[in-house]
Simulated scan of single mutants.
Amino acid sequence: MTHLYEQLKAYEGRAAATSGVGKDLVNEPMIRHWCEAMGDTSPAYEGPQATAPPTMLQAWTMGGLSGHTDRSGAYDELFGLLDGAGYTSVVATDCEQEYLRPLRVGDRVTYDAVIESVSERKTTKLGTGHFVTTRMDVRADGELAGTHRFRILKYAPAAAKPKGNRPRPVINRDNAGFWDGVAEHKLLIQRCEGCRSLRFPWLPGCNECGSQEWDTVESSGAGTVYSYVVMHHPPFPAFDPPYAVGLIELAEGVRMVSNVVGVPPDKVRIGMPVELEFLRVDKELELPVFSALPGGEG
């Protein structure tokens, strides 16, 4: 056992908060806001006789923006020790809750917290550090209502890996024509020769009539953002987060998934007009992406 770990272990069992008091009584407005956010319509959570959803257990102990004054110095000392050893980053990893009795409107919530455990040094994808678990005993009018365990990782970020190549698209007999078009800077859409409906992505047969005969039409490249997500934590070193992935509705009526470029990811909006361009991502690979048109960002 290293000297640092011996120091960290000494904090196990020490109080993180003592005789804490919730800033609000269990109340209808907070329950309503929670249920609206979660989409929970149970009648048990409505009216003056309502109980609070069990998963709100921790909510009644939170200090809000102004914080709490009841946290002990042990927690700050532990974090200072980890910071001094280079474990300067923190991420919440998981929580466990045990429910012993429902919280009811009007209950006064009190709590005590203890530093339950500090792990040995662990190596994760984020970096190397120590897991710290805090246990909080939550009481309602003095009666134990539940237990909340919250675990964080204090870590030193891993060194950035050299940027690699993008994963290669899988090209087969069913979609080879699409990639041949990309090589010629054309975005080709399949068209059924039986019912003349367009389809994307490429398929061996028509979803509408079942015909296996088809030809292609070239997209104009005009489209709009039908939906999108902003990616922050991809598992591949070839990607540079954050970046936007959009579901693009083409002017021809079909939709395709691709990157939205030309604006910061947080400026992408549903309905934003975009146009096709071809982006070379490495020496061997070029991809169709969509660039936001001037004035279309939110």
Rank of each mutant, 00 (worst) to 15 (best):
F236V: 09
A238S: 15
G262E: 00
M272R: 04
V245H: 03
E297L: 02
D141A: 13
G181D: 09
P204A: 02
E193H: 01
K161L: 15
M1D: 12
T224N: 06
E46D: 11
R149E: 09
G86Q: 15
M1T: 10
M231A: 14
K283D: 13
P43G: 09
L103Q: 13
R135H: 08
F236K: 07
A50H: 11
L144C: 05
F131D: 08
H68E: 05
A113K: 06
V274N: 06
E208F: 13
E184F: 00
D112F: 09
A140M: 03
H232E: 08
E143W: 03
T51P: 00
E120H: 12
Y87T: 06
N165W: 04
F236S: 12
K122I: 13
T18I: 13
G20K: 03
N27C: 14
A44C: 10
P157G: 01
M38L: 05
E36K: 09
V91S: 03
L153E: 03
T18N: 02
E77P: 05
A244C: 15
S211I: 02
V274E: 05
L78N: 02
A92H: 14
S89I: 00
T18V: 14
H130I: 14
T216N: 09
S197P: 01
V281S: 00
I171S: 01
S19C: 12
T128Q: 15
T134F: 12
P204V: 00
N175P: 01
E275K: 12
L57C: 06
V26K: 01
E143P: 01
E208D: 13
H3R: 13
V281T: 05
G39T: 07
Y111V: 11
P242T: 03
G67F: 08
E249G: 04
D40A: 11
E252V: 01
R166D: 11
A37K: 03
G13P: 07
F278P: 00
S72D: 11
V91Q: 02
H33G: 13
R14A: 04
W214H: 14
L247F: 08
G253K: 05
G223L: 01
A145T: 02
G164Y: 07
L287A: 06
R168S: 10
A159T: 13
A244G: 10
Y243F: 15
H233R: 09
R166H: 15
P201G: 07
C195Q: 02
G177A: 13
E36T: 04
V138K: 05
L279E: 08
G129E: 11
H130T: 12
E284L: 10
S72L: 07
K283F: 02
Y111C: 11
V217E: 11
D141H: 12
M231N: 10
A159R: 15
G64E: 01
A238E: 11
E143Y: 08
P204E: 02
A50E: 12
E12I: 06
A44W: 04
H130A: 15
T41S: 12
H3D: 14
D137S: 14
I115P: 10
A183G: 06
T55C: 07
Y5W: 09
L198C: 01
G73K: 10
D240C: 04
P162S: 09
R280A: 15
V114Q: 14
